[in-house]
Design a protein around this nucleic acid. Structure first.
Lengths: 238, 238
DNA sequence: GCTATTTGGACTAAAAACAGTCCTTTAGAT
DNA sequence: ATCTAAAGGACTGTTTTTAGTCCAAATAGC
């Protein structure tokens, strides 16, 4: 087997279609909620727009939304100025509770350590508009103020916000994607108040470095922060 | 507009489905050929396997393959020990020849500068099996020996091989993906012999640093190499 | 030369996904 | 009070995609 591990079939483009469009759409909407991209109480884009964003027909999107509604993740109101809203009583994560494949764990942590510190460094190097600075500060304030049970989405949102400051859509996508996988892992372990506090301090450090344009400090702080989470995950899951 | 650039709708999960399964499959097969994942003269996996890898039905895969066959990208032989082979006279890149969106250009170059030097550094840090070392050396030898008209796929394959040494599937995927986008851009500009020679020297430097485990040198060499290509692309396309 | 087996080739019926159209509800504006 | 526009809700016919089955070709090994 050793000689074969670098064969083409082992690295060929991964299947782009995971299950059918319907299931994939549910999955992606759920992920967006968990990442805080759609925050609790916030309105989702209108169905017609959302369908186009996700690259599925409105019929398929509606099937997925109906499913989420049945599971109490969202609430739907008709009429002008109506829309779909993330429910405040959205069910907590109900992961399979099975320890993940160790290879998947290492892959996520490795890739995260690649993209997130780089994003922080690039954000610090960028010339930030007032709106951008405000975006980061808002995300920071929200995660700091969040009660424990709403911490994870706000935390994710903050990390993604950093990537957004870089102006690179690919980097944003990579960070969002890796953060979704991290969130799934974090759902398997307890959220301890000391860790939460520590995270908030580190978030502030990262944001400060970015806002004062200190690229190396931003990279270091982000790297350090991420290594902390990595150790936590390895400790509980390895 | 300034206040809106960080709204959820601008960062929501990108459409996963680009066009229909048929077109997407053609696209991905073509990309795999251009990336040297399926090299000229090499057999593709059997249809039944390939279909599963790509996450489409065999019927859809076959439609795509028929199209590629019509366009002379592949040759098909029936019977046991038959199969599908990348044609030696595969048409050259026939890009739209339109200058890309400058934002797309910067996005690709930024993201590449994030993932590839990191991959080189991680590869240098990894404890490499003899098979792994050999994999890198083979890729290096093939790109060095390639005539100009077959340089690009071998070049891509070398860069991807580095990522493979890290053992992180996500990093491999990210590098392969970004390299596909770079290749599309490179198709728009001339391939000059001096650049080609220079590339080969830099490839050797990177490989050497990786094989002797010098992580920082590997990162620097990769970063430098990539910056060269970036400048070339900016010069021609910006 | 047979033959077993692996491969591509072809067809069908069912399911999924789509585009398009029209309906219903609703809040703000008039 | 009425109207209007923006949102979700529902239906239809068509196209795409799939899973499954069987056929046809070809070659290494006997």
């Amino acid at each position: 087997m050793e000689q074969l591990q670098f064969e083409a079939r082992h690295l060929v483009p991964r299947a782009a279609r995971h299950g059918n469009a319907f299931e994939e759409t549910i999955e992606r909407l759920l992920t967006s909620i968990k990442l805080g991209i759609f925050a609790v109480g916030q309105k989702l884009p209108p169905e017609r727009e959302l369908a186009e964003m996700l690259g599925v027909s409105r019929a398929t999107l509606r099937d997925a939304l109906a499913e989420l509604q049945k599971a109490n993740y969202i609430e739907v109101k008709r009429g002008r100025y109506g829309g779909t809203v993330v429910a405040s009583n959205a069910p907590a994560a109900q992961g399979p509770n099975t320890k993940p494949d160790p290879a998947e764990l290492e892959d996520v942590l490795t890739f995260r350590q690649v993209v997130e510190p780089a994003a922080a460094a690039l954000a610090a190097e960028a010339s930030l508009s007032p709106a951008a600075r405000n975006h980061l500060l808002t995300a920071l304030a929200e995660v700091s103020a969040a009660p424990a049970e709403h911490f994870r989405p706000k935390d994710a949102r903050f990390h993604i916000a950093i990537a957004e400051l870089t102006g690179s859509p690919s980097l944003v996508a990579a960070v969002a994607d890796v953060r979704a996988r991290v969130s799934n892992l974090l759902d398997l372990i307890p959220l301890l108040p000391p860790n939460l506090e520590h995270s908030n301090e580190q978030h502030k450090e990262i944001a400060d470095a970015i806002l004062r344009g200190d690229s190396e400090a931003a990279r270091r702080a982000a790297s350090h922060h991420i290594e902390g989470t990595a150790n936590l995950l390895r400790g509980f899951l390895a």
